[in-house]
Structures are given as C-alpha cells and as structure tokens.
C-alpha cells in the first residue's frame, strides 16, 4: 500500500506541474481553457464523492455550484467582501443548502434519491430565475469583479503575468488545496465507510454505522466543494446566471464524472479535461457538438464501462485504493 501512496503523490505532483506550466505557452486562449478545466475538475471530483465513493447518484449537483457562485459573486460585488472570505462563504452556502436538502434526500434510495436531488435543484434554479432583487433574475448577476491580485506582484515571473494568468494561478492553488482535502477525505476512515455503504448498505448498518448520517455528511461536504468551485467559476465567467443551477449543468458534470471514471479519484478530472478540450475543438468545426458528444458517450460507455480512468488503470494493472 505504501507503493500506491507514492504513485498517488507522483501523479498528483505531475498533474500540478503540467497545469502550472500552461501560462508559459503565453496564449490567452490556453489559459482560458485551463481555468475552465481546473474549475470543472474540482466540481466533478466533488460530485464523485457522492457518485463514485458513496453510490449516491445526485442529479442536482449544479444547485450547490450555482448557489456558491451567487453567494461569492454577490458578496464581492454588492458587499465588498474580500475575495478569499467571499469564496469560503460561497462554499459554506453550498454546504448549508446541501445539508438541508440532503436531510430529505438521504431518506430515499436509488432512483428516488436522484429524482429528489433533481427536484430540489430545479427549485433552486426557479428561485434564482425569479428573485430579481437579489440574483438579478433571468438576466443574471453580471460584472462580478476580478479579485485584487496585487499581492502577487512581488513574485518573480507570476507577478509580471496578465491578470487572466494570475487569476488562473489563484484558481489552480485553491483548487489544488480543495482537491487534496477531498482526496484526504476519500482515503480516510470516513471514506472507507462510504465505500462500504456503496457496496452493501444493509451490511453497513449491521456493523454499527448510522448510514443516513454518513450519507448526509458526505452530501453536505460535496455541496460545500461544489459551492467553492461555483465561486471561482462566477468570477472566471464575469457573472453568475441561473443556468449555473439548471439541470443540464448537473447532467454535464455527471457525464464528466462517469465518462472520466467514477471508481478512481482522478477519473472525474480526466473526464472534465477530455470533455472541455473536445468541446473546444469540435465547436470550432461544427455546430453539432451535442451530436458528437452523444456519439462519444455511447462509444465510451460501450468501450470503457468503468470510464477512461478505469480503462487506463486496467491497462497499467495498477489499482487505485480509492476504488476497491
């Protein structure tokens, strides 16, 4: 098992280094795509705490992402709250909402659980869509300010970058910290119990585990991280819109998670990267991106039932501990 820990650290470090060198390429476009990928990797990983780790297929994860984005954006623009505090509060907002909704959701199983997460997310969407005074309603909440990144100026090289590149570094740092925290959770005793629940809910009760309580806790945590990702995305997008909470967004993240590989910690991130890059590539060539995406999904689902990461993992004969 030590060997796997070492492999994990090496892989994580390598990914981080690759991600950090993107601004070196000097293209605004590449930095833009990389920021998008990092944020969605974080969101998909948070969803995977539910889907892959605990066997809870949430179909409304976008709600917590959207609420985090609104809380962070509104606090920064209307409240003048400093970026870091607003960002953290966005996460708290996502977690609180997930805690309340999760209380009801974890009482249900399987398809009913998915349906209720969807219904709650749609309620959130409808509220954001209508509550003009606070969220800007249908028009969205535009012009979320870029955080003040002057504190980075003293750094060699980074200090001299364009603001988009600087923001990318901030996103990368915060996302890395969040991902490491999620990884820690997935590999902890709590994570082990969650895999037990996924594997055999009944037996888990009979080893003395309050299954619902554990499910609620992980649901809340996942909502919190989704909120953190949302806060970053609102700034990156220069505005927050009701679409952030709408169900196709939930579907998009679920696709990233499952195609990337829900039984591996890094699978969802791979899914996010692959889908976003493909999207950029195909959209510039044809307007029929959904058709291509649908065809790719069918092909991947048939070819790699355990996702891209599952296929790669099997090829390397290396078993990630996250899975089992």
């Amino acid at each position: 098992m030590r060997r796997q820990t070492v492999t994990g650290v090496v892989v994580s470090a390598a990914l981080f280094v690759i991600a950090a060198t993107v601004p070196v390429l000097g293209s605004r476009y590449y930095t833009f795509v990389a920021t998008d990928i990092v944020i969605f990797a974080m969101l998909a990983t948070s969803l995977n705490l539910l889907v892959g780790l605990s066997g809870l297929v949430s179909f409304g994860h976008a709600a917590y992402f959207g609420v985090g984005a609104y809380v962070c954006g509104i606090l920064m623009k209307a409240g003048g709250v400093p970026f870091l505090a607003a960002w953290l509060l966005g996460g708290v907002g996502g977690a609180l909402l997930a805690g309340v909704f999760g209380y009801f959701c974890v009482r249900l199983t399987r398809v009913y659980f998915s349906m209720l997460t969807l219904a709650f997310a749609q309620i959130v969407w409808a509220v954001c869509f209508k509550w003009n005074d606070v969220t800007g309603g249908e028009q969205g909440y535009p012009d979320v300010p870029m955080p003040d990144l002057a504190f980075l100026d003293w750094l060699p090289w980074i200090g001299s970058l364009r603001s988009g590149d600087k923001f990318y570094f901030v996103v990368l740092m915060l996302a890395t910290v969040s991902m490491l925290a999620m990884r820690r959770i997935a590999n902890s005793s709590f994570g082990r119990i969650l895999t037990c629940i996924r594997d055999n809910l009944e037996r888990t009760q009979f080893i003395g585990i309050d299954v619902r309580r554990h499910q609620l806790v992980v649901f809340t945590i996942a909502g919190g991280f989704a909120g953190l990702a949302g806060g970053l995305f609102g700034i990156f997008n220069r505005g927050v819109f009701p679409d952030f909470c709408y169900w196709p967004k939930s579907a998009e993240v679920l696709i990233m998670t499952i195609l990337g590989g829900m039984y591996s910690f890094w699978g969802p991130s791979i899914g996010a990267a692959v889908l976003i890059i493909l999207n950029q590539y195909i959209v510039s060539r044809t307007e029929y991106w959904p058709l291509v995406l649908g065809a790719i999904m069918l092909a991947l689902l048939f070819a790699f039932p355990r996702g891209i990461a599952g296929a790669v993992g099997a090829a390397w004969r290396s078993r990630d501990r996250f899975n089992a």
Binding site: T5, R184, N187, S188, F190, G191, T195, T204, I207, G208
Partner: peptide
C-alpha cells in the same frame, strides 16, 4: 478491508476524515 471497516465502525471512527484508512 471488510474486517477493517467493521473495526473502524466499532471504534466509532466512521466520521474521522483525516486519518488515512489503509
């Protein structure tokens, strides 16, 4: 892992999110 999970549950460490499980 089967046996370890049961021990974790028995010792009430199910909500411990910091210590590595393995």
């Amino acid at each position: 892992e089967n046996v370890q999970a049961s021990l974790i549950a028995h010792q009430g460490r199910g909500l411990n999110m910091w210590r590595r499980s393995d």
